[in-house]
Design a protein around this nucleic acid. Sequence first.
DNA 1: CGGGACGTTGACGGTCGTCAAAATTAGTGG
DNA 2: CCACTAATTTTGACGACCGTCAACGTCCCG
Lengths: 236, 236
Amino acid sequence: MNHDTFKIACANCNMRELCMPIGLSQEELERIDDVIGARRKVKRGETLFHNGEKFTHLYAIRTGFFKTCITSEDGRDQVTGFQMAGEIIGLDGIVNDAHTCDAVALEDAEICALPFAQIENLSREVTSLQHHVHKIMSREIVREHGVMLLLGSMRAEERLAAFLLNLAQRLHSRGFSQSELVLRMTREEIGSYLGLKLETISRTFSRFVEDGIVEVKQRHVRILNTQALQDIVNPR
Amino acid sequence: MNHDTFKIACANCNMRELCMPIGLSQEELERIDDVIGARRKVKRGETLFHNGEKFTHLYAIRTGFFKTCITSEDGRDQVTGFQMAGEIIGLDGIVNDAHTCDAVALEDAEICALPFAQIENLSREVTSLQHHVHKIMSREIVREHGVMLLLGSMRAEERLAAFLLNLAQRLHSRGFSQSELVLRMTREEIGSYLGLKLETISRTFSRFVEDGIVEVKQRHVRILNTQALQDIVNPR
DNA sequence: CGGGACGTTGACGGTCGTCAAAATTAGTGG
DNA sequence: CCACTAATTTTGACGACCGTCAACGTCCCG
């Protein structure tokens, strides 16, 4: 491995509360530290893992921003999610010991590689870790249910509004502004995630701007009227 | 509880290979038996659990057919999946200790209630059970990725073709015919799952019949040309 | 400063949703 | 067992929404 690797103790990691169970004892934290193989930098555009690759690790995002996407046999592409600091990716690989999607960094990122076999070992002894792993997987299932609702029953405006609100909320919970966000992905990637074409994304942004709901300057978005976005998602 | 409950040993259950890890020792099988609370009958139209209900059990389907569906605040409805014998439902409830969807029996069914706390306990000791639980959750995540691809990038014909092939394949792996199937759900429920209106489902069925790809008599469907369906899903 | 990736906007057409009516089936109670 | 009602399905006409194609504009990076 000539990757750029390094190591920081979980106890010193500011993402701890997000990716690890809270309420661990000092001893348990140290044991988890042993599990963590290495931190690694991933440059913008590089893939962390790709479809078909053997599954060995989960990855906790320390900094940066990723997309995961699948490609069907006939070349159709679908972004299945955007992930940011504190989130875990690679869960899809467990079932068949191989990843079924690509994880691509949309900006320079740092990740912790977590050897899954060791996570299973340790979670047999540390109950809170075991439960945490179950929760992370369940959370992903629930998130995808939400995406199915969005893709199955919402119109373009509703999808984009829901997308912006979700992104803003996640950034806010990480200490960023809840009204100002920088999109790390292209219009095409947003469209792929939302089941729309890039032109529709662009047009819908323009309509939001006309209506004074957001300001858009390239990938910089400022939400001027959160309530209006919520009303679009949840019309009465 | 005045539910209609009963109990059959896992060792005697013909669904064992589907819902439980293979290669368990006799002793391990017996311990899993202790975990299983009770089998229960669920009549057509009844719900096994519903949105908001406290999460305590996973459910293994022994016989019958279920749908799971979520409802958004403004009343939008989305079927998130159809489940049949051998499949596990309720995984969405883990993350917040409450179910986030309804599970409704589409035909009379029998299920095994699996107290999740006991599953966690036992899977700390039985490695193969632990790994099996992880695989089941990962499989659900991968399945949902597939649905996202379908909802995000396929046209009506492609969605329905993919749906029929998936159903036929799952029934076939359970020993049923791979060309003859009985739909347990309405056109509206198919439409909700596929992100289409019931009229579109009906029309698309009619087109398949015109093209000699399937025979449809109400909910009885006979697939006459599997290859044609595959070509629709995966155009070259 | 120049080229390529990305984004915006317009015109037009197709797919699917909406509304409506009729046909068929399933369910219920007498 | 039959009659009656409710539920489901089919089919048609029409329109809205979004995709397609095309041209142009903008930004970023070497």
